[in-house]
Design a protein around this nucleic acid. Structure first.
Lengths: 372, 372
DNA sequence: TTGTAAGCGTTATCAT
DNA sequence: ATGATAACGCTTACAA
């Protein structure tokens, strides 16, 4: 296979060093354009924004000149002048390598895609920020919002009594939340800033009811700690379904865990070694469910009728697993879009009539859950 | 389950509208600090950066005051002044919802995690930018780099004769590439800007040789178009292995496709309907391999000895598939870190001695490939 | 040790 | 229709 022709500039790697002094040069300013055009800076500024007070002819002349010189207005200068940056930040825990997830969280990309897409259509830049934990947690928001790296921020991984909320409200930092608790919905609707959330509790309840409907009675719920709304709510939905069906709640069947595939794998290995193992497992996320199914298969347990598995999230992956995974699909892309819309509305000064969006997940039944 | 106590400020959603005027207020400037401290702006500026010329006492006093007033220097002002933004941008195609991938690319998160982590440790912000296609492709770089939204940019999805390179070089826009061709490595080493790449060709060759070593003779290679280096190189590696083993190259067995699980699924369905189907499949990515394995299982073909499948990427997912997927692991996180290190070095004005990093992927043998 | 003033590149408010 | 000027918030010679 022939090499692609040498089309790029060819220089020794060392020559980069020689180019360095020029790196920051040669970007024309508005003053430069003005000088060359023989007009004032303000005329150029007007011409470039198609101000009708500038006659068509000069306008065109200046625009051509600017294009020819490859002029692009300096963002920092503009931001400084306008007192806004047209940038929103997404703060996410999933970017931390040491967060224990073991590997990438597919959820984040889906969300990011929605966010990036919508932000672009609003002419906003997107800043990606790692969430910090503990002492330095609030410092992140102070830096980004106080220092005006961004005009507003999207928060994820909300917790009960999340002290970030009080902090952001106190400082009037524009923000939008992904994740409120279904537990306090009435209260959450009073929150002054927008949020969007998927009904984790109902989702988990519906999923559990699905298992119960299939005849399962010993249903384990695995995954999640006690930290975030989404994990608490999903667990609550599980218990709610049991209660409604007058099934006893067995704490031994409700097992906390990490969020990686491996966690699901190890826990399921244990479960299956019980003398009376559960006949169905509700995994708190699709990622976890992957590990659960693998463990079952490795133990020679066929996933389906005798041992049903359901996940949560609706990752594209699910339908290609063996067997295909029943799950509760979240409209992740859409959540991303909505979050951006809500935040932009706030920044624009025109908050939406209903700033609180509560979406329903959708039960997708596949072969991993079958009648017992 | 009790609701989390009402800890957040409680206001009607409509009150947000009333708060709006205050949104952009109340962020103190350096002038404000100076006024309150009874000193000049420049003194404050110095005190805040621990300039030793300011006596310890005043320094402390000013720092306390700033902290108390929640002062954070305005990034735009600082950037304007310094003529740099301490921001790098990642331009990615994977953020486009309409890109045909169908869903999230897990690869991107892994890369992002590495990038975000390393960038943070260099005190750089990370801007996330969707790649455009066609006419508007270069406009993205003009806007980001010319407009100084970022100091430098990370390019992905490189193509042969990628005209972005000439463009960036011509304008002296600092950048680093993820993806050069193994086909023109000598030439690529002359490129003035840094790049990092994983040896896709060798990886694919080693993977194919693995299959050949297992006794497979009819080996299909599916996936990828003719656009990007990574897909061309992997295909080249496949052919190289065949050639070395004196196996004939059958064009019918080298099948282009999209990059989604579904593409892998549909193609494999077709393959299996042939009168003499291949006994092994090299899927150009792990994501594609997921679809391949699903199709095999659905067709009643057991993946393993009689029908081996190998992927490429080494996503965490692979070891939990059924059967676990043999693959070539790319050090994705590390690539992200390296890209940032290289770019920061350029921006710092101290380019590394060896700006071109070529990493080897690692063959990870699992149960999806077995002797034929 | 600290203050003064110029400058970063825009935009906006005056005038003219 | 266009020019002059101030302002955005910060840094940094240069003075004092």
């Amino acid at each position: 296979m022939a090499s692609a022709g040498p089309n790029e500039p060819q220089q020794s790697g060392e020559q980069l060093r020689q180019m360095l002094p020029e790196l920051n040069s040669a970007r024309p300013t508005i003053a430069e354009i003005a000088r060359r055009a023989g007009v004032n800076k303000s005329t150029v500024s007007r011409a470039l924004r198609d101000d009708p007070s500038i006659p068509q002819a000069t306008r065109q002349r200046i625009q051509d000149l600017a294009a020819q010189l490859n002029y692009v207005p300096n963002a920092s200068a503009r931001h400084l002048n306008h007192a806004r940056t047209d940038t929103i930040a997404l703060v996410s825990r999933a970017l931390n390598l040491d967060t224990g997830a073991g590997s990438a969280d597919p959820f984040l990309v889906e969300l990011l895609a929605g966010i990036a897409d919508e932000a672009a259509s609003h002419h906003f830049d997107v800043l990606l920020v790692r969430a910090e934990e503990g002492e330095r947690e609030l410092g992140v928001y102070q830096r980004i919002l106080g220092g005006r790296h961004a005009d507003g921020v999207i928060l994820t991984d909300l917790r009960p009594n999340d002290h970030r909320l009080a902090y952001l409200c106190r400082h009037r930092y524009p923000h939008v939340l992904f994740g409120r608790s279904a537990e306090d919905l009435a209260e959450a609707r009073l929150y002054p800033y927008p949020w969007a959330e998927v009904d984790n509790r109902s989702g988990a309840r519906i999923g559990t009811e699905h298992l119960i409907g299939l005849g399962h009675r010993r249903i384990a719920f695995i995954g999640g700690g006690d930290t975030y709304h989404w994990e608490r709510d999903r667990r609550a939905g599980y218990r709610e379904a049991l209660a409604r069906a007058n099934l006893p709640y067995d704490p031994r069947l409700c097992i906390p865990s990490g969020i990686s595939q491996k966690d699901g794998y190890l826990l399921t290995q244990q479960l299956l070694s019980w003398e009376e193992p559960p006949t169905a497992i509700f995994a708190i996320s699709d990622v976890l469910a992957v590990g659960v199914m693998r463990a079952a298969l490795d133990a020679g347990v066929q996933v389906g009728p005798a041992f049903s598995v359901i996940g949560f999230d609706g990752l594209g992956l699910g339908s290609y697993l063996t067997p295909p995974l029943t799950t509760l699909r979240q409209p992740i892309n859409e959540v991303g879009r909505i979050l951006v819309q809500l935040l932009c509305a706030v920044l624009r000064g025109t908050p939406p009539e209903e700033p609180h969006v509560f979406l329903q997940p959708e039960l997708i039944v596949r072969a991993s859950t079958r009648g017992y």
